[in-house]
Design a protein around this nucleic acid. Structure first.
Lengths: 243, 243
DNA sequence: GTCTATATAGGGATAGAC
DNA sequence: GTCTATCCCTATATAGAC
């Protein structure tokens, strides 16, 4: 890990370079880091107090959940399968999850916090409206590439969430959309963007961003890199916005 | 129904007028018509030979399926719930569906046939490439508005399908995408469109079209009409394509 | 902290009366 | 053609041994 950082030290940092590699160097969202985040956000609900053990098993549970639920859906995934896939006994699972439903809630909750904080961080300090809009597009595509199983799960399985959590998921999406609404609105006020329906515009951008993790089977099959995809989406959107 | 047709007789027909009303006059996809299509495509698997009875109950089963599965997903919908909601006994259901899985397969199959035929029909006879592309965009948005529960179900529950049916669903999407690939490619060859990655372009269009039925809760809440949405998407895409 | 064995509920499907 | 009653299985969740 240190080696990698060293070899790439001289290339421009995120967001000056909008490359995926620069983003990965910038983003802390490794598997380990995520499990630690889970512990800090939800640790009170995990009965295993030894974090060294807990982190490792939690990672196995999450990985297995994504694998199984992506095949036939969260609801049709049984805890017996999960137990087998994660190599943790049925009883053991319940030291980490309060219930099957709670597992889905946890994933939604954790990703909501992570993605909101990281896309904030990735665009902080950019003053120029146009540059900020583009950085936000790239950052979301890159983050959803890095955390593809998480994003896919939250989108497809949001129905499995509790009523309360479902509301929160909708609010998270609308909050994210609101950031595009604000940026596009700013650009129009500044006279650098064409005037249009900013809500529909933001909504369309979100849809294009989500397509990246929703249809990853298609894009991967065609060997489209996240950077290429981000470039294409940016060109499409800016062709409409730029005066 | 006749009255409606009479009052609107003088307005331009689809696709000359790209209004939703003109499309509805053109499209045969009423609830009754769909159930008849189901019978003609899948009648051999329905043990009820009296069509007058069968059509009506089939309609209730489909309506109930969409209602229940849109709330918490197809897999978590039990046949007991379906029985209650459709007001047909457990045993009675099995005169119409071979199994729960078959019900999902049926919906996917029928919509595949209907949407492919109707969007074909809606753009048949249009020679001009640009006009044909726009008509296809409008037709799909309008059809997915008319059959919103069907489109939503097939997208969200495609995982519940059999392996074979799942493959078919993917192929249907790729076939549809291929029509955009061809149209965009034609336009570039004709010199009326800017050159770009036609696969990514088609993929982006599909994503924007699907957003209409996937996020209908959002668009409805904002009182966006299907026509307004179609206009916006068309402007967005054509801003990139038109030279 | 982790396992095996089990309790209990609810699922899909069907037999057989009407 | 439709219903009720029932079969059998698999699901989640937990108790208690180690």
């Amino acid at each position: 890990m240190n080696l990698k950082n060293t070899t790439k030290r001289n290339s421009p940092a995120w967001p000056e370079s909008l490359s995926y590699e620069a983003f990965l160097r910038f983003s802390p969202a490794s598997d380990d880091w995520i499990c630690q985040t889970v512990y800090s956000l939800r640790g009170d609900q995990i009965s295993v107090r030894n974090q060294r053990i807990g982190l490792e098993k939690l990672g196995r549970i999450l990985k297995a959940t994504f694998k199984l639920s992506s095949k036939t859906g969260f609801h049709s995934m049984s805890l017996r399968e999960l137990s087998r896939e994660s190599d943790i006994s049925m009883g053991g699972l319940y030291a980490y999850i309060g219930s099957k439903e709670e597992l889905a809630n946890l994933i939604e909750h954790v990703l909501g916090v992570i993605s909101s904080e990281l896309t904030d961080l990735a665009t902080a300090g950019i003053e120029d409206t146009r540059a900020k809009l583009i950085a936000l597009i790239y950052a979301h595509i890159y983050l959803s590439e890095q955390l593809q199983p998480w994003f896919y799960f939250v989108y497809m399985e949001s129905k499995s969430l509790s009523e309360q959590q479902k509301e929160k998921a909708k609010r998270t999406e609308l909050d994210f959309e609101a950031r595009f609404v604000r940026l596009v609105g700013d650009g129009i006020k500044e006279g650098i963007f064409n005037s249009l329906d900013i809500n529909l515009c933001a909504s369309a951008i979100i849809s294009l961003l989500q397509d990246w993790h929703l249809k990853s089977w298609k894009h991967r099959g065609r060997k489209i890199s996240p950077q290429r995809y981000a470039e294409f989406i940016t060109e499409l959107v800016m062709a409409r916005l730029d005066i």
